[in-house]
């Protein structure tokens, strides 16, 4: 997989390192010559010094054969244009823009560019942890219409000690994985649930609260 990352700072450095360790062919585009020199010393990835919203620079970074472009500069307008040029001029199949201003997530999506906001992500992580510490919403899937939730079963969980087939869950709910002592199990009806298990639950929003109540005994 060839990924072009435009931006700078620590986030870019660690992403570059992470992608390189996964064996991706990562290319970094950064405007600052000094930072470029440092990045090429520190990382085993190609570094292109220049403006990612300049077509020539994207071409030099190999945009024609890139599978994805990630634009994480501190300027939202640059991130938008980088992604649009990559998609429109080079046909890059997947582009993602960082929206520094959280309001721009919606704006970018309306302009046809996938976007994320670290403010949103961190904010919702904190909210979820504050709400119930044993429940972690892992990720919204299908534009937020599917919840994937990780639940640590407390000692008093009503489902602890029951076999899965004896637990009556609402429609559109699935216990996808049970993690017991660090080992993941994809459970069938005969598997039991125990206190201390971590359950990965897939729900639709309308049944999410009801399913959580059955599993943890607490209202959500």
């Amino acid at each position: 997989m060839r990924v072009i990352i435009a931006g700078g700072g620590k986030a870019l450095y660690f992403l570059g390192r992470n992608f390189a360790s996964k064996g991706y062919e990562a290319v970094i585009v950064n405007k600052d010559p000094e930072e470029c020199r440092r990045l090429s010393r520190q990382l085993a990835v190609e570094v292109i010094c220049g403006d990612g919203s300049d077509e020539h620079i994207l071409e030099q970074a190999g945009a024609r054969r890139a599978d994805a472009v990630l634009a994480i500069t501190p300027k939202d307008q640059d991130n938008l244009v980088i992604c649009q040029l990559a998609a429109l001029q080079f046909g890059v199949p997947r582009t993602v823009a960082l929206a520094n201003d959280p309001d721009n997530v919606e704006i970018f999506e309306q302009l046809g560019v996938s976007a994320f906001s670290t403010t949103h992500i961190v904010g919702s992580l904190i909210e979820q942890h504050a709400a119930l510490e044993e429940i972690t919403n892992l990720l919204p899937v299908g534009e937020g219409r599917v919840n994937v939730t990780e639940i640590l079963l407390p000692p008093d969980a009503p489902v602890a000690g029951k076999r899965l087939k004896d637990v009556i869950l609402p429609e559109n709910t699935l216990v996808a994985v049970v993690i017991r002592d660090g080992d993941p199990i994809v459970p069938r009806g005969d598997n039991d649930l125990r206190a201390g298990d971590t359950v990965v639950l897939i729900t639709l929003p309308e049944n999410h609260g009801a399913a959580l109540k059955i599993i943890t005994g607490e209202g959500s």
Binding site: S53, K75, Q77, L80, V81, Q110, L111
Partner: peptide
Amino acid sequence: HDDNVNLMVAQVARNI
């Protein structure tokens, strides 16, 4: 004087 500002603002005006 920033192309990308102009392009973003123009698209927001037109599409939103």
